[in-house]
Computed example of a mutant assay.
Amino acid sequence: MFPKVNDLVYIQVASASKKEAEKECKSRIADIEEESFLIEIPIESDTGKVKRLFIGDELSVYFLSDTGVKNYFNTYVLGFAEDVVQLVRIRKPEEDTISKIQRRNFLRVVAELELAVKLKDSTQFIAHTEDVGGGGVSFICDSKYVLNQGDLIYCWLLLPFKNGLIDHVPFEAEVVRTKSLESGRTTVMLKFVSISNLERQTLIRYCFERQFDFKNR
């Protein structure tokens, strides 16, 4: 079940700031296209201020059914359109992903990317990721590098886009879990502790580009 034109939608925007991520905004469906919704510029529910969105912003959205049940889906900003007022174009979700349960987890995709790692003792090495997402990454490294749950590390992730551009995303992360492999190497799972909103948006754009590639194979 999709929302209809003129239905209100309630939005939270993924952010490195917990305070910003918990803010709820409201908007309205202005038009429905084959693969997207056009919504009015969101307004913060508590302050009445306009919420500025950027291409690649990841959104947690819910709308109310005719019986008052909340229906949730995750989406992201595709772009903008001009009508009488400016509208925001967001990706229409697959209908079977709309749920009565809110899912706030960031998208993760399988990707083998180069990752420069710096440990707290200043040890530095190059590793390769297993997957990446807006909330963290996992990578494989030589077991000689000792990493423990709770360790903070600094990383620089290389993102190659299809248009030929290459971005470098710096971040600080916490080790969530490690797993020893039969090969003698170690898988390390990280969650972001400090990453700028701009860098997170860049990473999320890469994830959606990568996901689109998988869907079209």
Rank of each mutant, 00 (worst) to 15 (best):
R91H: 13
Y145E: 01
L165E: 15
D96K: 14
V69C: 01
C141I: 04
K144T: 10
C141A: 14
T123M: 12
I126F: 05
D131R: 05
Y72Q: 08
V88P: 08
V61S: 02
N163H: 06
L107E: 02
K120L: 08
R52E: 14
A111R: 03
R89D: 02
V132E: 04
K51S: 11
K49P: 00
G150W: 04
F63T: 04
Q86P: 15
G134E: 02
E112C: 12
L78Y: 02
L78I: 11
V69W: 00
E95K: 15
I153W: 03
G68D: 05
I90F: 05
D121H: 08
Y76T: 03
Y72A: 10
I153F: 09
H128D: 02
I101Q: 08
V146C: 09
Y62Q: 03
L59R: 05
G133P: 08
R108G: 05
A111D: 10
F161Q: 03
K92W: 01
A81L: 02
G136D: 06
V61L: 05
R89W: 00
T75E: 03
G135M: 07
N148F: 11
C141D: 01
F54A: 10
V85R: 13
E94Q: 10
V146R: 14
V84S: 14
D83Y: 12
L115M: 13
S65D: 14
G136L: 03
E94R: 12
S65F: 01
L165H: 13
G164I: 06
D57F: 03
S60P: 00
K162W: 00
K144G: 01
R103F: 08
